[in-house]
Nucleic acid binder design. Structure first.
Lengths: 376, 376
DNA sequence: CGGGGTTACTGTAGCGGTACAGAAACCCGA
DNA sequence: TCGGGTTTCTGTACCGCTACAGTAACCCCG
């Protein structure tokens, strides 16, 4: 990486006394003095145009422009108004990893998109706490989204203590807070039923858990540490259990290719290799396909694979993945709406109703080419 | 989508008078009165622990806890201190689309990751302006990243007028502001040279531009509207031009699969079909591979393809893509560092030097299976 | 026992706005 | 001409916190 340094020349951002000779900072008062009106009138010129005549407003705005005044100071305005114009998003432990996941990234995009018309900015809150700076506690915001975090994270408690309007997404909600959840049990159940209908009875599951290492879980019921994982496992098992299927659950420490490879091998190396595999994500399913192909195991002739999420990978995979589709746009929209409603509610806006919202986003099975009849 | 409503029961976030009977809001003064010290001492208990005795601090903290006081109000603190603890990121026109792009998403993740230890939150600034709320003007922040935006976007001007410390990423920098740029010309040139070395002389280029529709560009030199696209085209041409290669440039309105398909077809349908294609992104290259395969054109036997970015797609593609790798981690790290330095500089911290930073992140050619010798 | 240096706490003066309740001028119909 | 309603502008009182410059007590040492 090359680093060069140039003198700060024409950049308007260079600090110090700028042209005009005015030393102190320009505030409403500066402009008020210049124009010969009260500070309040200048404030109104910027924030409540209907409170003064158009001409005076024009005069004020021009004076402001000449003085290089941009607009009311956001921090001061936040204090006086009690609103900041930003909402937070609390992410998983590692901020970066949340963006590795295309599903999470797409969700944030959708939320930001939905929030844009309201003028709210989305502040990503790192959950690492340096001793004296704790974003969840110290960043000014009007509300926050809690996205797929371990339920006991300290930052969540800061948000709660601040009494911020909160929306929990893909995560066990707190009593009284709004929530947006995927209808994961239904989707997972449909996927499992699809396999049963194709005649599969020996089924593998590749899902994430908080375990340190990749390996076979002793008991499907306890499976999954994350809320989402648990929901999906329960959905799958709700179909597989009653059907008396022979289920092997493999836990992965996280949703990455490397771990998925290990997990795939474990299943493929079993003496009684499953004839079908249900995966926590498309990435895992795609990896399974790849490992299987490398071992000469054909998909779907020898083994069927089902993904989850219907991410872009699913269509690109070869063969294209049968998966459970979630509507990320809808999820983002729901989260944004729930949050703005929660904020409105906290301000006493009666039109948004009393209690918190609880939204379930539907999931649907998408059958493609990675599943087929169980081998005889 | 199902929406249910429950009564707000145990949620600590429910507003109104909480236990204790205290009506007004709890502030530093409330605690000061309770403990019998000055408000300043309470402030110090939270913000400057070294300014009072440990015992008194404990007493104060306990009283605060009993009163349900979380900590100094962020908005008030921002005003008094002059810092907010958040930095903005200005995104492309559509906030959502920035997240569709895995490269952009990974970059944000990396930036957030790097910023985390400093306790700075990353605020995503939508560029849409509702009449009275303009995030770039109204959100409290200490500095901002401008990421791959059209240079004349109004929000950029707000940021500049606010005299915020700025860092321009993947974008033509402004004199005096810091910048982080990819060494695109070098990378693109290497890719083009690689094709020349393989004997290719009839070469297609698929890149993005602001044109409305997909089509052949009349003149390679004017090609590309975005800064990044322009840099890459110049890099490619710097090798192809002198070699006297026969170059056809196709412009896509954006970096999406749908448009890439159209562009790929245009090149594949040419009478004199290129023997190699340079693409603006891996997504485009991958799409080209797919369209070629569908038409029975073999990669790399009949046509070679080079991508850009070395995104996850590149490795997953079949055949795996030859591409130009950019180090997103480094880019994120550089952007975060440049920004914190710019902020420090604006505060008069002499240890970070005088002028703005200008960082170039290196690019390297990664040869995989999508390129081969030119067909005879 | 006096003087210099800490340590522990306090008072004042903002930070830069906005809400709200006037007040003055203006308008209009009866 | 008078009363009530608008429109337009102003004054005051905060919003909740922190910087900074004290002040007072304490400590240590020659």
């Amino acid at each position: 990486m090359t680093t060069a340094t140039r003198p700060a020349d024409a950049y308007p951002g260079s600090y110090g006394t700028s042209e005009g000779g005015a030393v102190g900072r320009v505030t409403l008062q500066t402009i008020a003095d210049r124009v010969g009106v009260s500070r309040m009138t200048v404030s109104n010129a910027f924030s409540r145009p209907d409170q003064l005549s158009a001409e005076l407003r024009a005069t004020i705005l021009q004076a402001a422009d000449e003085l290089g005044y941009v607009g009311p100071d956001p921090a001061a305005r936040s204090l006086a108004r009690g609103t900041t114009g930003a909402v937070g998003v609390l992410l998983t432990e590692s901020v970066g990893s949340a963006f590795q996941d295309p599903i999470a990234a797409a969700f944030f995009g959708s939320v930001a998109q939905e929030l844009a018309p309201t003028g709210l900015a989305l502040a990503l809150l790192p959950s690492v706490e340096s001793p004296d700076r704790i974003p969840a506690r110290d960043i000014p915001m009007d509300g926050a989204l809690v996205y797929s975090c371990a339920g006991d994270m300290a930052p969540i408690n800061w948000l709660i203590k601040r009494k911020l309007p909160l929306v929990f997404v893909d995560q066990a909600p707190i009593a009284g807070a709004s929530s947006v959840l995927l209808d994961d049990r239904v989707g997972a159940r449909a996927a499992a039923q699809h396999l049963l209908d194709l005649g599969h009875r020996r089924i593998g599951i590749l899902t994430t858990a908080n375990d340190r290492s990749t390996g076979i879980a002793p008991d499907p019921a306890t499976a999954g540490a994350g809320y989402v994982s648990r929901e999906r496992v329960e959905g799958w098992m709700s179909a597989l259990g009653p059907a008396g299927a022979d289920v092997t659950v493999v836990h992965l420490p996280d949703n990455t290719e490397a771990n998925a490879e290990d997990g795939a091998r474990i299943l493929l190396d079993l003496d009684d290799r499953p004839t079908a595999v249900l995966c926590f994500s498309d990435l895992i399913a795609w990896t399974f396909e790849r490992v299987a192909r490398a071992q000469g195991v054909r998909v779907p002739e020898d083994v069927s694979v089902v993904g989850y999420d219907d991410s872009p990978i699913a269509r690109r995979a070869q063969p294209a993945l049968t998966t459970v589709r979630q509507d990320l746009e809808a999820k983002g929209r729901a989260a944004a709406t729930a949050l703005t409603r929660a904020i409105a509610r906290s301000r006493g806006d009666a039109s948004v109703g009393e209690g918190p919202d609880a939204v379930w986003v539907p999931t649907t099975l998408v059958v493609r080419d990675s599943t087929g009849p169980a081998p005889a």
